[in-house]
Write a protein that binds this DNA or RNA. Structure first.
Lengths: 185, 185
DNA sequence: ACAGGTTTAGACAGACCAGTCTAAATTAAA
DNA sequence: TTTAATTTAGACTGGTCTGTCTAAACCTGT
């Protein structure tokens, strides 16, 4: 159906622009121009810009899980899958433009009243946390840290590394994060 | 001088609003209205909104160092000063509204062409990194990790914790970060 | 052929934005 | 007192923004 074509194209373009420029900095006009889609079509598929952002974040997280599954499936050593999580992020960042995590960036761009979107982001972040927890639990690591503590550590170092990526536009901090993790598993 | 009064009031108000709402989301109109200052006076002291942001970030980092010095001075055990760095951030966050680090938030709100500001933020971030490095080097920690690795770890966990603060509006992640650090020093 | 869902181009409204300008008032310094 | 620096209120420009609307075209399934 054409509906899907247009919807996907809007999500693709908006996602790229939201990620590169930020949500507030990206206007509807730019989105529809770059997607080569009429204004009316945009509002036919999305009732507002905020709804577009929510849909984009959903798809982003979904794609993240699918990509992580595929990436980790190639790693046989369950312990190496923990550092694999960060390697996956490094790969993604290099592919997508070194601007940090879309979720974290979206959160930073929220306005005072966007409580619905903020809650949405919290849920998605929690999902990613749970994903890490599963990988850690199945890793058979050395238990220098508990499963919970190690999970927290991976998530925190990962987020910290992504912050560094957004600032410095390189993956140095993510690589440092992985070095630290590898010493504790 | 009144010049300073007005300038400080503008920096105070703008800083609070930039922090709570974000740079792009905060207009000149709101700043001058809440600071109760005339439009002309604003442009008498700052030539543009971007210049105001740069001045605000400079003052923010400066205050951060002054506050950190004062906070750490009360801690006699040099090792406890490392976790003290995070405790200081927790205190600050609770005081200032649990919206994460102003520097990281400003970076996330930059536009495509703001290379000057981006470079500015990099330098300030590096300064804070160096500050942490000094505290670590003087701590006499157990050397489970090298000085450099431990510094990286503190910075990354701290940034990760601040991301969590910005998303969840609590300091749980910063407290987790400190728990992890305390096990490795 | 027909109907309904989809897409187009573009005008439009209403609001906000950053920054400029004027002219008068206030303050500080000499 | 005179001069210069500072502050005020507010109009104004030119631009951008999201979202609405219209009227015509296009496609698709029946």
């Amino acid at each position: 159906m054409k509906e899907n074509n247009l919807r996907q194209r809007l999500l693709d373009t908006a996602g790229r622009l939201f990620y590169e420029q930020g949500y507030k900095q990206t206007g509807i006009n730019q989105i529809i121009e770059e997607a080569a889609i009429a204004r009316g079509s945009f509002y036919y598929h999305f009732s507002s810009k905020a709804e577009l952002l929510a849909a984009y974040l959903d798809r982003f997280v979904n794609d993240w899980f699918v990509g992580a599954d595929a990436y980790l499936a190639k790693i046989t050593d369950p312990k190496a899958r923990i550092t694999g999580l960060i390697d996956y992020r490094i790969t993604n960042q290099k592919k997508r433009g070194l601007s940090g995590c879309a979720l974290l960036k979206a959160n930073a761009g929220l306005e005072a009243g966007d409580d619905e979107l903020r809650q949405h982001i919290r849920i998605l972040k929690q999902k990613m946390h749970d994903y890490v927890a599963k990988v850690v639990a199945a890793s058979g690591h050395r238990q220098i840290l508990s499963n919970e503590a190690l999970t927290d550590m991976v998530v925190l170092l990962s987020d910290g590394g992504l912050v560094g990526t957004a600032i410095y536009h390189n993956t140095n901090d993510l690589e440092k994060a992985n070095l630290l993790i590898s010493q504790l598993i």
